[in-house]
Design a protein around this nucleic acid. Structure first.
Lengths: 234, 234
DNA sequence: CTATTAGTTTAGACTGTTCTAAATCGGGGT
DNA sequence: ACCCCGATTTAGAACAGTCTAAACTAATAG
């Protein structure tokens, strides 16, 4: 069995690798889990001994198939927990992340199954992030774009929001911007400030940092996908 | 903050102290948490530095008020989790213990509150053990007796069963002996084998080890308490 | 009153994870 | 082609928790 600490490393590597592709740099990992680069190098050695990563000195690491499975398991736990807390324990959207982080390493297979059953095997968590299936098959690539990359008059659907920052999430919750919300981009100001019309209703201006943590898909494509019976939101 | 490991030590000391009173011996702790006595001695030193126990060399330890509060918090977590798992996640009576052990150190204050609220502030867990209140006031003394100490023709009510042994719990579940069950002692054989009539219905013979893990109160007393509106079972 | 012995503590080593400080690497600009 | 600087790795120390083996304590049996 791998320790919690090791699982956290693998989760971080997975997340970075999913966004920027391999190889993943030592310092990117260090930033993500708040450790020194020296500590990361040291741990990469032991992770390599365990067969869950491959490390090329001075180049970076990559997860092995085994390593990816472990990461997917942790991510599945995390997202199932987030969904469960929101659905059955009255947690708000912005509160679930920290609790899930604390519990994700400590639940049994049995607990995982029962939580999944209680939620009827959900496909996404409350932030719109996909939940790996029980067989831990790799998630398929992300076809969304950041809101900050949109242009005036685009009509888009919010698919997911970055769950790492409480502040941003509370801001968005108050603004009514959640996965599934339709947005029309009204204006893009200097420094990335984006103004949107929310669900054809109120207007909101979002600072760049917030706009960057929102990922959207084209509203038309989504409608088409919807007709084909695919899942488009939580 | 204390580590999980330290919390486990305090929980074990609490449990032993609750049964046999202080001081608690090094070897009793070692047995309870499956460590060597030398390890226990070492940890008692660091726990004393943290102010949660008082240790007299060669005599034994005792929890301080702070130490007892920590133990009560862990016990509250454990028992609330057991109750929640049984009530809302379809766990059987005999399965809840291990899962609760794994999670008890990792839940937040917030989680504790929400679980308690979802259960409507339960007073006992599925094994009949009392759940410490949110203010962590000391639990009051146990006025139950082990089934193994009963005599023929006694009529008693099961109040709690030891949650540490899966085997015994599964046996009792099958036998229909759970907290709240009324028993009449039919016979006591050599080596402690106890035969009981369950709820005035089927008859069961219980090996001594099982009889020792069942605690009961007098059925008449219980009925009186019940009339006064007190809680007598789960 | 002393010898035995079960229980306890000390001494010292080991594992896992982290850090700081110092050495090293390697890609980009001149 | 060389140098530089930021990124990385190495070296070595520190801390938490555990173990084994050896020394010690205290209660008891004779």
């Amino acid at each position: 069995m791998l320790s919690d600490v090791m699982e956290d490393y693998l989760k971080a590597i997975y997340r970075i690798q999913a966004r920027s592709g391999p190889p993943v740099s030592t310092s990117a990992i260090a930033d993500a889990i708040d450790k020194t680069p020296a500590s990361v190098t040291s741990m990469l050695g032991t992770l390599e001994d365990r067969g869950v990563v491959v490390h090329q000195k001075y180049k970076g690491v990559e997860l092995t198939t085994d390593g990816e499975r472990v990461a997917l398991e942790v991510v599945r736990h995390h997202r199932l927990l987030e969904a469960y807390l929101a659905e059955h324990l009255d947690y708000s959207w912005s509160e679930v992340h920290d609790e899930a982080d604390a519990l994700e390493h400590h639940i049994s297979e049995e607990f995982e199954r029962r939580v999944a059953a209680a939620l009827d095997d959900p496909a996404v968590d409350p932030h719109g992030d996909p939940i790996p299936s029980a067989d831990l098959a790799p998630l398929d690539g992300d076809d969304t774009t950041p809101l900050s990359a949109c242009e005036v008059d685009d009509r888009v659907l919010v698919t997911r929001v970055n769950d790492r920052d409480r502040e941003d999430l509370e801001y968005l919750e108050a603004a009514g911007v959640t996965p599934g919300t339709a947005l029309k981009i009204v204006g893009v100001a200097p420094f990335g400030m984006v103004t949107v019309r929310v669900d054809g209703d109120t207007e909101q201006s979002l600072p760049e940092s917030v706009a960057e943590s929102i990922r959207v898909c084209d509203a038309v494509d989504a409608a088409v996908a919807d007709e084909r019976g695919e899942v488009t939101d939580a």
